[in-house]
């Protein structure tokens, strides 16, 4: 019996007239590396925001670490990391100051070591004192990953983590994910891009028309790609 870290039940969300999520059901177990694919505008970002508790759903039930998220629990927030499409970084502050700011908000002890080692890990240690405003998209992305990991969360959400990353940076990201996964961390990632991210995961899903229409484990990339394309085709009708 695997440890269910996140259980979402019939999540619905609409913006004005637009029904974005139409009853999403999802279970994430401890140690999963789950990737959810879907084309643009299908509600991936909305879903990940709801799961990471930054956005509230219209209806449905969401339990993270066995607890409901209604009471804005600090405990849950301390265990969640979110590398969003937006980097959540202040361009007037340096890389170090950005991480230091978030470390203070999470009240992390021995933050100096933590920040130093994270910056080394994402390959930005030599740019510690430079302002984030001068960083490229890929560098911001890496720093954003460090930001998401600053409080050693158990469940990490990644929103299109590969955009803007070059091959080297993709390797850094993949190695980091694998290492943390071996330490028992769980990952949930959304992307539209199969080529760069497929090999990293062990569970796959496809989001279409506001619902998860297909879920599988350990398939071959080629077979999954065919299925994905088939679903995308059906979507356009």
């Amino acid at each position: 019996m695997p440890d269910k870290i996140l259980v979402a039940n019939n999540i619905k969300k609409s913006f004005g007239f637009l029904q974005v999520l139409n009853g999403v059901n999802l279970t994430i177990n401890k140690g999963d590396k789950y990737i959810l694919f879907g084309s643009n505008g299908v509600g991936k970002t909305t879903l990940i925001k709801i799961l990471s508790t930054t956005l509230s759903a219209d209806s449905g039930e969401l339990k993270i670490f066995g607890k409901g998220i209604e009471k804005r629990s600090k405990e849950i927030k301390n265990k969640i990391g979110f590398m969003s499409h937006e980097p959540y970084l202040y361009s007037e502050l340096s890389a170090w100051e950005n991480l230091d700011f978030y470390a203070n908000l999470y009240s992390i002890k021995n933050k100096k070591e933590k920040i130093g080692s994270l910056l080394k890990e994402v390959g930005l240690y030599h740019r510690s004192n430079d302002r984030v405003g001068s960083f490229s998209r890929g560098m911001k992305q890496r720093l954003s990953l460090a930001r998401a990991l600053i409080h050693s969360p158990d469940l990490i959400f990644l929103d299109e983590p590969y955009t803007g990353l070059d091959i080297k940076a993709q390797d850094i990201l993949n190695n980091l994910i694998n290492r943390l996964n071996q330490e028992g961390k769980t990952f949930f990632c959304i992307t539209h891009d199969i080529s760069s991210s497929f090999n990293i995961a062990n569970r796959y899903g496809i989001l279409s028309k506001g619902q998860i229409v297909y879920e599988t484990e350990g398939v071959e990339k080629k077979i999954f790609s065919e299925k994905y394309i088939e679903i995308l085709r059906r979507e356009s009708f």
């Binding site: 937006e86 959540y88 202040y90 908000l105 999470y106």
Partner: peptide
């Protein structure tokens, strides 16, 4: 505008 509001709300403060 900088998109950092959600980052703040994500933290346990």
């Amino acid at each position: 505008e900088q998109g950092t509001k959600e980052g703040l709300l994500l933290t346990p403060i």
